[in-house]
Design a protein around this nucleic acid. Structure first.
Lengths: 345, 345
DNA sequence: CTGTTAGCGCCTTCAT
DNA sequence: ATGAAGGCGCTAACAG
């Protein structure tokens, strides 16, 4: 394979100057129709392909956008990435996707790579709860934060789901179906996310004159096994009667259901479980998991759209919080006879 | 924010020539230790960041690699992408990920973008069963195919899972557990994948002197609903007795279980279901799905590694077929008392 | 060991 | 409407 053709080759072939070719290739302003055609066919003939590297270098814009998420193989983040990708494609940029694996070491490395590649900007789910965000500015590219951790950086734009609203949706549903004060299964790893979640629950009840201080709480890793273990502990101190669980993510909720089943309890007859996330797996378990769905794809989309605005010089700081919505399936029992009546009637 | 510093700025700051700086930045061969230190501290001081665009342009290597998969939010492909990413990171390249959405139109568009970005090479799950692959060569960048469709292009390297072996693993397991001639739920969309699967099943039985022509077969979309529908049709003609299903992917297998349950049948008591894929959701359903796991992450890893070799000028065509492995869970009943004995004993 | 020089492919004034 | 020339930031000979 020989050298790839450049505008110079096209110019020779078409018998014009390279600037003429350049003009044709970038829109064709101030060129006669005849020459446009001439150049275009010459280009096709010798198989010319525009070299974006050179374009980027001249223009200072690479058309590349970076996104760093904890793990692209995690369904939630995969969905976010998908949304981001669609948005990027709609503005003719390409997406460089990285997984930080929840390690700030890898995060730093990826960020470095992005900057070196001269991405026009990037979107990031920050791993470390610490750091003040000024290090991001030092990188010299516009950036935008993804998810809850963004609250730590007041002067940075961000996009995430509205946890408070999402918790409200779940609790409204539980209340309407006759459940009061569910027991909580929380994640222990990400301190800030954990705090946000529990604060939202507390505020919800305080606003309704219910004392939330007696809500039992168990921490687990954000995994199925973490959920199982937390559920096992919760079950040990459970007095009897219908048990209602609200888990901070779907995997832990799934774990709770599994653990209940293995202890001979039936969900939803004996135990009701409300999840939080909306992962696809929740649809296929038995019973299918009632949960709060986060707008993952939309988060991805909006983040890129906002980033584009940032890149285009719109300096306004915007903190977008997208609404979650209830996904009603079968893991929460209706304890409220009136509703049952209303529904059947 | 002012102009970003270049090696010239660093050179001024350090009081050396720009080529000296360049040498330091790219490994520091033939430079005195004193100067290296001088340059490095100067670089840090003014916040110099290497510009890969310029490097790429000179060197002809962008350090960028492309990957085009059908859908990054599909768990299987997400896992492939993850493996690819890890491999890319280990060779200091960055990955541009695109989703073709099973549309050859989008595939073409993404490929074009990749070429324009001057990726060093790319990896692709080809959508169209047609086309002879010569169009890929025209793009001028080394490429490698992902998955079964690769068989259509004899002169191209590829990486995928070994369907024949995977089918064998599943059928071995079914046979060993007393099941003979399962009914098949196949996908209708991708003709080639469908043909490969059914051929593998046929050959398996022919090699064992079993006549496979009487295997009932139903086609479905590669989705849960497709599986449900196919299962419903299968159930209609089912004479009675234990029913054994082998689905060409996990989603359809899940659908089959769901449909069986909704018709009052119990899995695995009345119906055994074997899946194919190994998606995470299969772990949480009830019963958890016994299936054949494809080495998704490894496919991603190996594809990038092979691509790197291609880029480095290794012209040998290699068709890598990675082994699948059985994931034994609970959706297949053991019909064979001897094994039950052997296991307990 | 270090500096000088000539591009990589393109866009963009500035002339014509 | 078209051509000539300079330069984006860096690397790779070639000198010294």
């Amino acid at each position: 394979m020989t050298r790839r053709p450049t505008i110079i080759d096209v110019a020779k072939q078409a018998g014009v100057s390279k600037s003429t070719v350049a003009r044709v290739m970038s829109g064709g302003q101030h060129v006669s129709a005849r020459v446009v055609e001439l150049v275009e066919s010459a280009a096709k003939e010798i198989g010319y392909q525009k070299n974006n590297l050179a374009v980027s270098m001249r223009s200072g814009r690479s058309g590349l956008i970076g996104i760093v998420v904890p793990d692209i193989s995690n369904p939630f983040w995969a969905e976010v990435a998908r949304g981001a990708q669609d948005a990027a494609a709609s503005t003719n940029s390409s997406l460089l996707i990285f997984s930080s694996d929840w390690k700030s070491e890898r995060e730093r490395k990826h960020l470095q790579a992005l900057v070196n590649t001269r991405v026009d900007g990037f979107v990031l789910n920050r791993i470390s709860d610490s750091s003040d965000g000024r290090d991001l500015e030092l990188l010299g590219a516009p950036s935008l934060l993804l998810g809850t951790t963004a609250d730590l950086f007041p002067e940075k734009s961000s996009v995430g789901s509205d946890i408070t609203q999402g918790v409200g949706v779940a609790l409204d549903y539980l209340t309407a179906h006759g459940h009061e004060l569910p027991k909580l299964i929380l994640g222990s790893e990400r301190r800030l996310a954990r705090a946000k979640f529990i604060t939202a629950v507390n505020e919800y009840y305080i606003n309704r004159d219910v004392d939330p201080t007696r809500i039992p709480t168990e921490d687990g890793a954000y995994t199925v096994d973490g959920g199982r273990a937390a559920m096992a502990r919760l079950l040990k101190t459970h007095a009897g009667g219908h048990l209602t669980i609200f888990a901070a993510n779907d995997l832990m909720a799934l774990g709770a259901i599994l653990e209940a089943r293995s202890q001979g309890l039936n969900c939803p007859r004996d135990v009701s479980v409300m999840g939080f996330d909306g992962i696809p797996a929740g649809e296929f378990c038995d019973p299918p998991l009632t949960t709060v769905g986060k707008p993952a794809k939309e988060i991805g989309r909006q983040s890129i759209l906002s980033l584009q605005r940032l890149i285009d010089g719109d300096a306004a700081v915007a903190k977008l919080r997208l609404a979650c919505e209830l996904v009603e399936r079968g893991s929460v029992l209706n304890l409220n006879p009136e509703i049952a009546l209303a529904q059947t009637g």
